[in-house]
Design a protein around this nucleic acid. Structure first.
Length: 272
DNA sequence: AGAGGTACCTGGCAGC
DNA sequence: TGCTGCCAGGTACCTC
């Protein structure tokens, strides 16, 4: 379930260890992630330095002079920094050793994540080139969302989860944002007003940035073997609360399925 | 081109 | 207790 806040928190946690570090070893224990991990190409990075670590959408990007390591945590993945030589567990598929002192370790039970090597420019990469704007960036605003939504018949929930429209809004935060904006998740994207999209943009931004703040305090130590949960619990307002009273009006929260995904909303508060 | 469905995978849980 | 079966969830890709 790493959504954007989890990925951002992970990035912040590992940055101090990876930026400037030399890749002193690469161990691929299980290459069968979403796409085969390019073991040989990764091992050719041994001796290179990681110049910087960035996030784009839910991808973590490690830049080196010879290419960009592109990591995705899928649904169950996590990255930790551990002392070199730390015992590995069942789903620890990949280690990138740093300066011979630490390992950046990818754990992913469901193996929906990936580790690929991209050649610059990154914007040309297949997985990156058609991504929409960052939800916390300046290109994501009411006018943009309004324009994108015209003549779109999909449910607004699917619309905001579409990575070509905006990145980083996963199933949980989609429900949460629509609740805050008072919009019924089943409504066609094309039928929502510009003003409502303004509220939705604010809601998405506040939900995501609150979660990032919460993550910063929950995940404070990336160097302890058992110090980090894969993802942190949120104070969720509607997600997973079917049948429980709405926090604003006490009406029971409803759940429905939109695009094969569980969706939660308050039938009284979300009327647009 | 847009919309909808499918596949990938495994831990955890409900039900028997 | 142990087995079976279902669900979650991100996203590329396929079909209509």
């Amino acid at each position: 379930m790493p959504e954007l806040p989890e990925v951002e928190t992970t990035l912040r946690g590992i940055s101090a260890y990876v930026e400037g570090a030399e890749i002193s070893n690469v161990v691929v224990r299980n290459a069968a992630l979403r796409w085969p991990v390019p073991k040989r190409a990764l091992r050719q990075l041994i001796g290179q330095h990681i110049d910087s670590a960035q996030r784009r959408a839910k991808y973590i990007l490690l830049h080196t002079a010879s290419g960009i390591i592109l990591l995705h945590l899928g649904m169950s993945g996590s990255l930790r920094v551990l002392p070199s030589g730390s015992a590995h567990g069942k789903h620890d598929h990949l280690d990138i050793e740093l300066d011979g002192r630490h390992v950046l370790r990818l754990n992913d039970p469901r193996r929906f994540g990936c580790c690929l090597l991209a050649t610059p420019p990154l914007e040309d990469h297949k997985l990156i080139k058609s991504l929409g704007p960052e939800p916390l960036g300046s290109q994501f605003h009411a006018d943009y969302l309004f324009k994108q939504s015209r003549r779109r018949k999909v449910a607004v929930k699917n619309f905001i989860m579409d990575g070509k429209v905006v990145v980083g809004v996963g199933n949980i935060y989609a429900s949460e944002s629509l609740y805050l904006a008072g919009i019924r998740p089943t409504l066609s994207a094309g039928r929502i007003s510009r003003a409502r999209y303004g509220l939705l943009v604010e809601a998405i931004q506040s939900v995501l940035s609150d979660a990032i703040k919460a993550g910063g305090t929950t995940l404070n130590d990336f160097t302890q073997a058992d110090g980090m949960p894969g993802y942190f619990s949120q104070q969720l307002r509607v997600y997973g609360r079917a049948g429980l009273p709405c926090l604003q009006c006490a009406t029971p929260i409803k759940s429905t399925v939109i695009g094969q995904r569980n969706t939660f909303f308050c039938p009284a508060c979300q009327t647009f």
